[in-house]
Design a protein around this nucleic acid. Sequence first.
RNA 1: GGCGACGUAGCCAAGUGGUUAAGGCGGAGGUCUGCAAAACCUCUAUUCGGCGGUUCGAAUCCGCCCGUCGCCUCCA
Length: 457
Amino acid sequence: MKLYNTLSGQVEEFVPSDGNRVKMYVCGVTPYSSTHVGHALSYVVFDTLRRYLEHKGYEVRHVQNFTDIDDKIIQRAQESGVSEDELVEEFIGDYFHTMDALNIQRASEYPRATREIPRIIDAIAGLIDRGHAYPAAGDVYFRVTSKDDYGKLSHRTLDSMIAGARIQVDENKEHPMDFVLWKGAKPGEPSWESPWGPGRPGWHIECTAMSLEYLGEQLDIHGGGQDLVFPHHENEIAQSECYTGARPFSRYWMHNGLLQLGSDKMSKSLGNLVSVVEALERFSPDAIRLYFLSSHYRSPLAYSDEGAAAVERSLERVRRALIPGNGTGPQVEADSHRSRFTTAMDDDLNTPQAVAALFDLARDINRGRDAGQRIDSGQAALQELGGVLGLTFEDRPSPEADLAAAPFIDLLVSVRTELRAARQFALADQIRDGLAEQGVTLEDGAQGTQWQRQTTE
RNA sequence: GGCGACGUAGCCAAGUGGUUAAGGCGGAGGUCUGCAAAACCUCUAUUCGGCGGUUCGAAUCCGCCCGUCGCCUCCA
């Protein structure tokens, strides 16, 4: 299996350091607002990676953090008149709720920054001891000039960073690019005791401490959105490698392209967010996952309701291919699709190509059904490979109102069946049209008439 | 200003040196059907932003130009 490694800028053969065990760390969210579709994209990508690795027989230990203390959390909590803890609990709950809805597997561990303070302090102290960090006026900074290859992940040099000229001057720092490891507490802020006075950890050091604690000195895969490459992941590398001496901190760095909304990146600062809950009101979890997986994970993806609706329609054909058949002929052949799927996934997770294999398989199943072939083994393959992408092919549950209306719809359908038998087609069509106006579609098949609620717009 | 990515059919999107340029949505025609729907079949890019170049051969490599976007600051 080949994966693109941001560190080398190349597609490389993936080989875990320890046999079939894979140590994967994915940066989690800062829980102060609702989970949006950009988060969903990232976690669908890494969930799919994990599912595929497991499909190949790897044992994946997946750790994902929560940054449960930072400026935004403090600010938002104060605005809302709740404690930081309450705010964090609410949005961690929201996160799990939406990720579960999207069929994203739970990580092995979900460490939180505030519960790892001693480990974080140890790491900062170690960095100071080794000359890679220095205290200044209640803060502690990382000394970027102490790491000769600082910038290797984002492929830039300190000089070029300074040329960016958007760095604010800070008198406490030795170098403008030095970043904070420990923030001295301001009045009214939550804080923890430390050798440098009361304060809280900087963003980057949390991930270093937590990955070290739960996965050890060296990771196989470290993932996140492309917006984390600099400074977050660059700084993680600097801290971790300087603290442990183990290089590289992570052997593979993987970054997903960012979701765009219209022409802009979807981001917290732009406020152009679409919540996952909102998207799930309109589309099935499968449709949202498949939408994300229909383009390559490293490409940016523009989200639109029209696009999601098109994907939902395409899923309908696949779902129908899974309706049991009653053919007695030879089994529909699935091996060529299976190997195409695997080849695609082995090639840096080429999910668009893998998805194309699934659509082709669905077509062959439907074709085989029409030809009287047995289709159950093809269907099993479709279900299994779809599962590797986290797709269930389940219909969305019908709204409760439909359950109440079901007996009446059944009655109308049976009346219509009588009318058709009597060749009273005008009246039969009147019933079908009337139901269609109510969003109920009828299909007359060999086994009688089926009705269903129209779910796509 | 620095670093980087991308531009493939009406739309979304694979393919990155060599048989007929995946797949999906949409559209056209057909089979089936009382008519539909669904499913299936056929068609829907002689061509890959533009112009040059390298090569026996390029969407795929190189140069220039045009256009779009990301990162450099909190962000998945």
